[in-house]
Every structure is written in structure tokens, then in C-alpha cells.
Simulated assay, not measured.
Amino acid sequence: MNGVVYAQSFQNPVLDSGADPYSIYVDGFYYYTHTVGNRIVLYKTRNLANLRQAESKTIWIPPKGTVYSHEIWAPEIHFIDKAWYVYFAADDGDNTNHRMYAIQNTSNDPFSENWEFKGKLAAHPDRWAIDGNVFDYKDQLYMVWSGWEGDVNEQQNIYIAKMSNPWTLEGNRVLLAEPTHNWEKQGDLNDAKNPPHVNVNEGPQFLEHNGKVFIVFSASGCWTDYYSLGLIEFTGDDLLDPVAWDKKSKPIFIKSEENGVYAPGHNSFFKSPDGSEDWILYHANDNPGDGCGGKRSPRMQKINWNDDGTPNLGVPFSTQTKLAIPLAN
């Protein structure tokens, strides 16, 4: 691009800072975003290994004084029915009011100024919600997200609902998973700066491979080194049937003290430009105790598949490890 010759290997992290990384691939380019907090920033590159050299732009800043003016978390960009959408969680400055929202751009170029606020996405009942992930399954749009059962923070669960259009949830939300294992409940209750509850399932991501469907999610407090990824496998006929989902008893991606990678979580997935490789994007810390703030940086690595069809994410690679970039066309 622009005559620049890029290296054929890279080292993590792909940016110095950026939590909750997400990307899509459209017409030869990756469009990437992560949590900034007060706005939405978009990157554009032909290969995510070259993210440091990517064009970037702030595409949307919330108006002041609204219920969605603060704490913009985990944005995701999607291209649906020839229109661009960014989904994000936001509040009015009070975390208890976090909800999911959408903006839309119907132009060809998501870097254009044509972003329109479409409103809140809420299923019944309308409760605290973050980390929405939208996907298409058998020509039906769905959203999965992390939410509270009631109006107080007792624990974070994974919910799913159908969508009647790309900015509207339809009907009742359905509970897919809640924290049940010790590795989903890690947190420091003695630290007054941290939330009092550590039962956390969040950051759900849809993943499909060879006819199998999964939700990969993050578990435990993001402020702990034990933040990790779990797996739910779809084993039935109806995505809205809780019985049709099987949560694995062990995490599938955890910290590596040997490799100096802590609190790996809030991931997404992408394919290499040539479509032959599956990759994971995730954030992690370089040191123990780095917490749930600006020290989290986006990383990526190729994943494999187990004989039973489940994803094998491996071990987080050291920042000293040179990795081959995703295969280009």
C-alpha cells in the first residue's frame, strides 16, 4: 500500500495500548477498533500485523450530556447489508447505567463523516449490558452480550437475543452462561478500588468452523492476572435454547508466566487475507498486577483446531517471539 514494503514477521503487541480489540475484513482491508473510552477510533490496514503503520481516524465522538456520553467500551465494527455499524457500550457517567448502542454509516467508506446514531439495543428485560457481539447464523442476526440479571452488580452473565434489524433487539433475552467454576470467579476482594463481585462472564465472541458453533468468552475480574477465556459449544438446533449450549469446565486460554503474558482476554477472531488461517486478537498485560487499564495491549496469534472440532488457542506468545504475518493473497 502506497509503495511501502512491510516486514513478513511481527512481534506482539501490535499496538502499545488498546483493550478489547476487534476487526473485520472488507474488500481487501481490515478495519480495526478497540476501547478508547471517550470516542471511537477506526484503523485501516491490509494486514493486522502492520497495525502500527495503519491509517487511523476518530469516526465518532458522543454528544455531551446524554445517557451514552461516557465510558465507551468494547466497540465492534460490522458490515451488514451494505452498511457499516459500530456497536458499543456507554453510560451517563454512572456504570450502573451501561447499555448497548449502535451507530450506522451507509456510505462506502467508514472513514467518511456520515455516521448516524441509531439508538439503544435492549432486549426484555432492559438491564445493564456491555460487550455486544453481532453475528449472522442461518440468515438471522443475533447479538450476544454480558449483562446483569437484575439492577445490581451481583454477577455478569452471557445473554443472547435475536435482532429484527441491525440496530434493534427482538423479544426476550436468553441466558446462555453464568459463572460456575472457580476460574470464572477470581478477584481481589481486599482491594477497595475493585468491584466487590468477581463472578464474571463477559466479552462473548461468536466463532464458527466446519459447521460447529461456539461462543468464546472472558472470565474473572479483568483487573486480575487470572482473566482468561472460556468456551461454550452449541450442540442443539435453536440458538435461543439454553439447553443447546455446553460450557466447557476448563478455560481454553490463560496467562503464561513463563512467556510474560498476564490477564489475556476480551478477544475476537479473524481470518488471514487469503482466508486459509484462523487468528485470535486479544488484549493482555506484560507484567503481573498491571490491572484493567491502559497497560493492556492488543496481540494476535494463529489458532488451530482440535480433533473434536473445538478451537485450540495454544499459549500466549512472548513479546520476544517473532511470528509470521497472516498469509496474504
Rank of each mutant, 00 (worst) to 15 (best):
H283S: 03
T45M: 05
F111V: 11
V315I: 14
N105K: 01
R46Q: 15
N306C: 09
D94E: 12
P264D: 06
P110A: 11
V243S: 14
Y87K: 04
R52C: 05
A284C: 08
G187V: 02
I103G: 12
F29P: 03
L239H: 03
G309D: 12
N2Y: 11
R46P: 13
S9C: 05
L207T: 09
D278Y: 14
A102W: 04
E202G: 03
K138W: 11
F217Q: 03
E170W: 00
R46L: 06
N190Q: 01
T310A: 11
D20W: 01
T45H: 03
A328Q: 14
S318H: 04
A263C: 03
P273G: 03
D238Q: 08
W128T: 07
N267G: 02
A90I: 08
F206C: 07
G37R: 05
K138L: 15
N114Y: 13
Y32C: 06
N312C: 04
G187N: 03
D188H: 05
L231S: 07
N105H: 01
N47V: 05
D191A: 05
G309R: 15
T33N: 02
W84M: 07
Y31K: 02
M163V: 08
E178H: 07
N108A: 15
K138Y: 13
E76I: 09
N304K: 12
V200S: 08
T319N: 13
A161V: 03
G171F: 01
P311L: 01
E184C: 01
L239K: 01
N172D: 05
A102Q: 04
N165R: 06
I160M: 02
E154N: 15
T319L: 01
L229G: 04
D278T: 13
I24N: 02
M300N: 09
E257C: 03
G211F: 08
I160C: 00
N285K: 03
G18L: 00
T35M: 00
T235V: 15
L229C: 05
Q53S: 14
F317P: 15
I80T: 15
